[in-house]
Nucleic acid binder design. Sequence first.
DNA 1: CGGAAATTTGAAATCGCTCAATGATAGTGG
DNA 2: CCACTATCATTGAGCGATTTCAAATTTCCG
Lengths: 258, 258
Amino acid sequence: MDDMWLRRLSEFIVPTPDELAVLEEAKSDRREFKRNEVISSEGSPVQEVYFLVDGWVEGSVGGDFGRKQLTKIYLPGDFAGMPNVAMSRTAEHLVALNQVTVDAIPIDRLPLLFEKAPRFGCMLFVTAQQERVMLMDHLATVGQLRAIQRVASLLVEVHGRLSALRPEIGNVIDWPLSQERVAQSTGLTSVHINRSFGELARRGLIAREGRRMTLLDLEQLAELAGLPERHFAQQPSWLATCCLPREHRRGRHADKAL
Amino acid sequence: MDDMWLRRLSEFIVPTPDELAVLEEAKSDRREFKRNEVISSEGSPVQEVYFLVDGWVEGSVGGDFGRKQLTKIYLPGDFAGMPNVAMSRTAEHLVALNQVTVDAIPIDRLPLLFEKAPRFGCMLFVTAQQERVMLMDHLATVGQLRAIQRVASLLVEVHGRLSALRPEIGNVIDWPLSQERVAQSTGLTSVHINRSFGELARRGLIAREGRRMTLLDLEQLAELAGLPERHFAQQPSWLATCCLPREHRRGRHADKAL
DNA sequence: CGGAAATTTGAAATCGCTCAATGATAGTGG
DNA sequence: CCACTATCATTGAGCGATTTCAAATTTCCG
């Protein structure tokens, strides 16, 4: 299963071979990172974005001055560093959480992507809005919930995205986040995260053996978190025919897929 | 000053008359709302997005189940409800904070916009990424800062965006948010917001007379908030030539403006 | 095997919450 | 224009969830 990322990429539209070729064309090179290596540093000039092929990446802000806030856990198929396209200096700090493979995309090749595969560009727009919704939910979690609910919320969210990529994992996650990082994501202290994990285990909702995390009662965890359960638009009709390149219009439609 | 919104719309590219015409074409109708009126309701089917012409609008999630989190304060020139394009059911709840004028844009006309004004569509993509950065900063504020810092942060952020629209306001804001709403934005209680406002006033950083809020020491407020001070890309060169419609390519370039 | 990083646990401090009551303000209809 | 009423702002007292500080233990990695 090496094309895990394709599932995520196909969430809103199934890319045509042409569109995938354009994406390939936009990429400059493939890079590997080890756990804790910095992929892109907050404050540096904005030069590229990254397509995550394999591994987990954390996005964060505020590491420079004061405390660090984890804003996103990127999984295979996600584009990391995209928020930086609106900035003159990098806002989102990217660090590998385990062994990571990314394809770098120079930022000045993005127009190419929009020009040669407009429907794909359109899809990137919708994906950006989806990321906003996820960020809004993350904000609601940190702003409105108790500690234990925030932790449950994070577990359920990551597990949901992960099992969309690899349904066969079941309830087990190879969890690469230190408790310190979970704290930075939830707006709590690592000490309190430790106690919260303990409480969840005591309640029989999770089990931990080293790096291995098992969600014993997914339903109860979700209920505890009190998440809204989002339904993202699947292959929306208005997007399927959006931004088709003119040369494609004359021939067969590019959105025949699915 | 009725075209306040144009300043915001011109942040990344100055739209050409053609592009503005396409935007007008996408709009269906203009609507007025009074304070506290609901513009778009969480959970309803996604049908339109809104271009905010005048007034303030709050975006929120979680009003349905449990506690409400304010995710964004929209000001003139902002597109509200955009995150919903990724959803099958509305995620972002929109409420007028004062007398509001919006132009509704049916969601199925968005492709039109991307097709007929690709550069403008490109700009919408960048704007979405900018919103992500602002959301990330909001999250960092709620997750990492003390109560008084969160309040200061909100004041500074809104003032900054407001004075980009109307520099002549100086340090005075006609503040339409109840303390309850400030609480929902900062992840605190209205009681504690009240005490925080009191503390800020006692320190001589703000003054309040009814709805009128004066930021007496903007610099100290910003320092208290400890904000990163974001520099958004101004008229980035890669965007200026992005996604020009093919018919424009043959003639004069559409990005001559600025 | 050694050293650094991460986890775990306890005790005390505190920031912000809850509950509750009073005062001010603004919108509404007579 | 004023009385009426609901919403909003303000203040106090006590409580509690989470933090802070500190130390012991375990795990991970070279």
